[in-house]
Amino acid sequence: MSSRSPRGDPESRRVRVEEMRRADRTHERRRKITIGVVSAVIVAAGGVGIGYLVSASDSSEQRQATAISGGKTWQGLSRNHVTTDVSYPMPPPVGGDHHPVWQNCEGDVYDEPVSDENAVHALEHGAVWVTYTDKARAADVKALADRVAKTPYTLMSPYPGQASPTTLSAWGHQLSVNDASDARIAQFLERYVQGPQTPEPGAPCGGGKSS
């Protein structure tokens, strides 16, 4: 009488095959789940990164595009070096032809008016020029002088011919204010001291004209 091994029993083979199929299906499901989870993490991470970059870029562009309230802008200003007087269309000037020597702008505060042509060269180097008339309050003049003295790439001087008590000028940009407490002063300095408008970024502010 012969006996069959369980492996030879047709029923046993069917059961074993079914078990193998179930195992294969389970393994496949786990593999797909793992791939799905990993892919989701990668996509999510990539999406966050891309979203951050886009948001950061958008924010930067918005900051650049957002004008300071009340500010004026000029474009296409010439940049020739000249040794003659220049007739500028706006007082104080914000750009144009200028003297080969720049006005020192390392936080320099001048008690007397300075040459337009030298000051414009300082603007070309990325300086902000703070000017004022006798209509500006003495306390405001002192507060602005203290701020300028602590800020590289700035200069300050009287400017009798301007319309407002205080004016801030950068290359191609200008802002008029009535008093030193105006929050736009800090905005202007932050944006335009060595700002993106600078034709010659990194050029020196010392070693020029000192009076």
Rank of each mutant, 00 (worst) to 15 (best):
S176N: 13
V101R: 11
R184P: 03
L155E: 03
Q174A: 09
V130Y: 01
E106G: 13
H98A: 11
W171K: 01
V120Q: 03
A138Q: 15
E117S: 14
K150H: 13
S176Y: 10
K142V: 14
A127I: 08
T166K: 07
D146S: 13
L155W: 05
D116E: 11
H99W: 08
L123V: 08
Q103T: 06
L175V: 05
P92F: 04
V193I: 13
V120M: 04
E106Y: 12
K150Y: 14
H125M: 06
Q162V: 08
S169C: 08
Y192D: 00
Q103F: 09
K142N: 15
T151C: 08
C105A: 12
Y153P: 00
N178Y: 14
S115T: 12
D116S: 10
A143S: 10
D111M: 14
Y132H: 10
H121F: 07
V193A: 02
D116K: 10
S181R: 14
Y110W: 11
A139P: 09
A149G: 13
S169R: 04
G95N: 05
Y159W: 11
T167V: 12
V141I: 15
Q174M: 14
E117I: 08
S115L: 11
N104G: 05
A163H: 14
A163F: 14
R147W: 11
T151G: 06
V141S: 02
R184N: 04
A183M: 13
P160D: 09
S181V: 12
E117H: 13
V94H: 03
L189K: 05
A180K: 04
